[in-house]
């Protein structure tokens, strides 16, 4: 069982992470590079030099971009282990297989729990923004993901109405408690770039998780059939 999750997670995560990395490189990286020009002071907000939100990609940086692709694959392997563990847990009480298309829905729900939920109070940041101390944000991030996963699981798989309310309360609690915030806002990049970055990061995350979900279901089924025979 453990190796089934491991093997299918490695396949689904590396393929899904590769797709995510390429999408991020094309859609998110140009916005990040643009905001770095403000972080380093080459461009100034309200300065005389202006530039569209799409910084051109003609300066390829093979080592930096290669590392980003590699780490995207590693992180998505971690996501795949979580997602396939959840799928396997569900399959303990339901004999059906999860199809590729159902896997896409699992992926989207996984995205809501792990990616979107923490971003609602702790949005994706362009480099250089002011933020509270990193450890406190990380603790808040992991707590929010944990509560959101439990909350969504209760809503999805426990039919009694009380679990709907308990699940909803768990999902909303960290946002009522509030994410750590900085004392002052000193971000040098224009808000337009920050907003574009956040929505691109979330949009690409959604597509990547949908792909990851489909692949996870596909490889989990393949591994289940292979190890059963």
């Amino acid at each position: 069982m453990f190796f089934r999750i491991l093997v299918s997670g490695l396949f689904a995560g590396s393929l899904g992470g590769l797709m995510a990395g390429l999408l991020q490189w094309y859609f998110v990286q140009p916005v990040l590079l643009h905001s770095e020009l403000y972080e380093t002071g080459i461009l100034k907000h309200f300065g005389e030099f202006t530039n569209g939100p799409q910084q051109s990609l003609d300066t390829l940086q093979p080592i930096r971009d290669g590392l980003s692709l590699l780490f995207s694959m590693i992180i998505y392997i971690g996501y795949a282990f979580l997602l396939i563990s959840a799928m396997t847990l569900r399959l303990q009480t339901s004999s059906d297989r999860i199809t590729f298309h159902q896997g896409i829905v699992w992926g989207i729900i996984g995205y809501i729990a792990v990616h979107l939920a923490p971003a609602i109070s702790l949005p994706p940041e362009v480099p250089g923004v002011a933020a509270a101390e990193v450890q406190s944000r990380q603790i808040w991030w992991f707590t929010t993901v944990f509560l959101s996963v439990i909350g969504i699981w209760l809503i999805a798989f426990k039919p009694k109405i009380k679990y709907f309310f308990i699940g909803s309360a768990l999902i909303i609690a960290p946002h009522i408690f509030g994410a750590p915030e900085p004392d002052v806002f000193t971000g040098p990049a224009p808000t337009e770039i920050g907003a574009l970055f956040a929505s691109r990061a979330l949009g690409i995350g959604l597509v990547s998780w949908a792909i990851l979900g489909g692949l996870s279901a596909f490889f989990l089924h393949k591994e289940t059939v292979r190890t059963a025979s």
């Binding site: 990395g21 991020q24 480099p127 990193v134």
Partner: peptide, 15 residues
């Protein structure tokens, strides 16, 4: 440093 851009693009708290 190696994972910097992915951490930002994935929405993880980075710095």
């Amino acid at each position: 440093d190696a994972a910097h851009d992915v951490r930002h693009a994935t929405g993880f708290p980075c710095h």
